[in-house]
Design a protein around this nucleic acid. Structure first.
Length: 597
DNA sequence: ACTGTGTGCGCG
DNA sequence: AAAGCGCGCACACAGT
């Protein structure tokens, strides 16, 4: 390791960065700095630390000077450490400054404290010092009413990022199993890279043509009602439904009213669900199903949605890394995880730019393959669709059965065709099937399970354990026993799925982490319309579990598509090393999102 | 008028 | 009788 002295702070600029960090902390916590980012009028402390977290250089700079400082420091490729990218990164991007690497202490703090990998360390199981978007005050462990009276209960704003970093580094360093520690380090790096991607995607925005969206809505729903009421075609369908059911005042949006009217018309339905209605024969049913489809589009992604969420030709949802316990992202605002296929035509690349749409084929079963190191399943998926591979191997008789069977294995299905082919899958792929059933058994016992890199599932609530205990006593009623057994299986399905879904989320993070770096290295001379600093480079604009969309200058579109593929190979190697499981992508270069797939 | 819960359905 | 995992959001409806 290179020796560094406090006489030469910020030596990162002189090249090389052997595992240390530049820690950014708000020096004076002004009103707007309460969330941990810098306030306009405050000062920022940037501390250079070594790989153990020990400080050896410090600069104090006005917050307004931070972007310039960061831009210069990036020449040395440092790893920044800060309370949270959510708070610190947007002001940098607003000044056109990107960073390469960081450690998001809030997100990493949640992982490190919860991971079974750090079980023997003092940090394990302690309360994280700061709330995250995924664990806001008011969530578990916080009293919302008290929070409003006393902000100090929202965590500890005064916890020093430096000591938090040291505590995290020490906890990982103390892990005896070196390989487990390395996997956890990879997870922390990937989670942090994700925190940057999330902020960058919001900054860049998903290109969205409001005029195209409007045309889709008018074509499907009919002309827009001037006051926001039902558009023409929907209104006409309501009239037909009311006439057919002889219910002139019926509001088809009300499940209660609808069920009542349907029963009066002689149908024996117990809910207003489309799935149930599909099984009934009555002239009103097709009209009703059509209405439901239109009503859904109108309510979820209609003109009101457009007005609320699309501005200046971009859709900017709030991405929340780690927002799901499994490690998947959540989003808030605009329902970004549920963009219906119907409106994807409105996602259009800027002039002279292209969209690269890529999704990982059968990601979760392939993740299971790698987790279990199931050679036969890897072979079945090599060079082809995994489900077709199961058919070719003679395990199941159709692609559809392969698919529902794998889903049943990973989700804990017990009914239908999926459950029926499970025994065949178990015989053909004992390693893979054992892995998921052991995860389920652990959950049923109340034990935690972990992903490949070490994200650990929560344990069931006290109430769950209490219910189990009561049900096992001699005096338990059959109803108590039945209910407890049901809760047991519920939790088993959760842990069964956790290992697969969570490891798939890790693969996706590694994929994006590599991709954003590769894309950032590619530039064209002429700036486009994208917000700086993305106007000259391909960049991520959307992410959905196993799918990404990249917005790229047309001249770089093919290179960007190659980068997407190379990054997927890299992610596979990072997680599974030499084990020969493949993660094929479908990649298309298109002008609009609906042309993909 | 506001808040919390249930229903239903979109996505992977 | 329950029913395959994980989400977010709009609306209806009940409670205050």
């Amino acid at each position: 390791m290179t020796e560094r002295s406090s006489q030469t702070p910020m030596t990162a600029a002189s090249g090389g960065w052997p595992g240390g960090h530049l820690v950014a902390s708000a020096r004076r916590e002004g009103a707007s700095a309460r969330q941990g980012g810098p306030a306009d009028d405050s000062e920022v402390t940037v501390t250079e630390v070594d790989r153990t977290g020990a400080a050896f250089g410090e600069r104090i700079i006005p917050a307004a000077g931070l972007p310039g400082f960061v831009r210069a420091a990036e020449q040395g490729h440092p790893r920044w450490a800060w309370r949270s990218s959510r708070d610190w990164y947007p002001p940098l991007l607003a000044e056109g400054v990107r960073i390469e690497r960081c450690r998001d202490l809030a997100l990493c703090g949640v992982i490190v404290r919860g991971s079974a990998t750090t079980e023997s360390t003092p940090l394990h199981g302690t309360a994280a010092p700061w709330p995250t978007a995924a664990h806001p005050p008011g969530g578990e462990g916080y009293d919302d009413a008290l929070f409003r009276l006393d902000e100090s209960r929202s965590g500890s704003p005064d916890v020093d990022p430096l000591s938090e970093l040291s505590a995290q580094l020490a906890a990982v360093a103390a892990v005896e199993d070196r390989r487990a520690a390395d996997r956890l380090r990879l997870l922390l790096a990937a989670e942090s890279a994700g925190s940057l991607v999330a902020v960058e995607m919001r900054h860049a925005g998903l290109p969205w043509r409001a005029d195209v969206h409007d045309r889709v809505l008018t074509r499907v729903l009919g002309r827009r009602h001037p006051l926001g009421g039902r558009p023409e075609r929907m209104e006409r369908l309501v009239s037909v439904i009311r006439r057919e059911l002889d219910a002139p005042m019926l509001n088809p949006d009300s499940p209660v009213e609808l069920v009542r009217a349907l029963r009066r018309a002689g149908l024996s339905v117990s809910s207003a669900r489309a799935r149930e209605l599909r099984g009934e024969r009555h002239p009103v049913i097709p009209v009703l199903l059509e209405y439901k489809k239109l009503a859904r589009l109108h309510a979820a992604n209609g003109w009101a949605w457009l007005d609320a969420w699309v501005h200046d030709g971009r859709f900017r949802p709030d991405y929340i890394p780690g927002g799901v316990v499994t490690g998947r992202w959540a989003t808030s605002g605009g329902g970004a995880l549920q963009l219906p296929k119907q409106v994807r035509a409105a996602v259009v690349a800027d002039p002279e730019w292209k969209l690269i749409v890529a999704d990982a084929a059968q990601l979760e079963p392939r993740i299971l393959t790698g987790l279990a190191r199931d050679e036969r399943m890897a072979a079945a998926g090599r060079g082809r669709d995994l489900y077709d591979g199961l058919v070719d191997a003679g395990v199941v008789d159709s692609r559809e059965h392969a698919k529902v069977g794998m889903l049943a294995a990973m989700y804990g299905g017990t009914t239908g065709d999926g459950a029926r082919v499970l025994p065949r899958l178990a015989r053909a792929f004992p390693h893979a099937m054992n892995l998921v059933s052991e995860a389920a058994e652990a959950g049923e016992r109340g034990d935690a399970v972990s992903t490949l890199l070490g994200r650990t599932s929560p344990t069931p609530s006290e109430q769950w354990f209490e219910e189990q205990r009561v049900a096992s006593l001699p005096g338990a009623t059959p109803e108590q026993e039945r209910r407890a057994r049901s809760r047991t299986r519920d939790w088993g399905r959760f842990t069964r799925n956790f290992v697969v879904q969570g490891t798939a989320a890790e693969w996706a993070l590694c994929w994006m982490a590599e991709l954003r770096i590769r894309l950032a290295r590619m530039t064209v001379d002429a700036p486009g319309r994208a917000a700086p600093p993305f106007d000259r480079s391909p960049h991520l604009v959307y992410f959905l579990h196993d799918e990404v969309v990249v917005h790229a200058p047309a001249a770089l579109a093919d290179a960007a598509a190659d980068a997407v593929r190379a990054s997927a190979r890299s992610a596979g190697r990072l997680l599974f090393g030499d084990f020969p499981v493949e993660f094929p992508l479908s990649v298309t270069v298109v002008d609009s999102y609906d042309q993909a797939g």
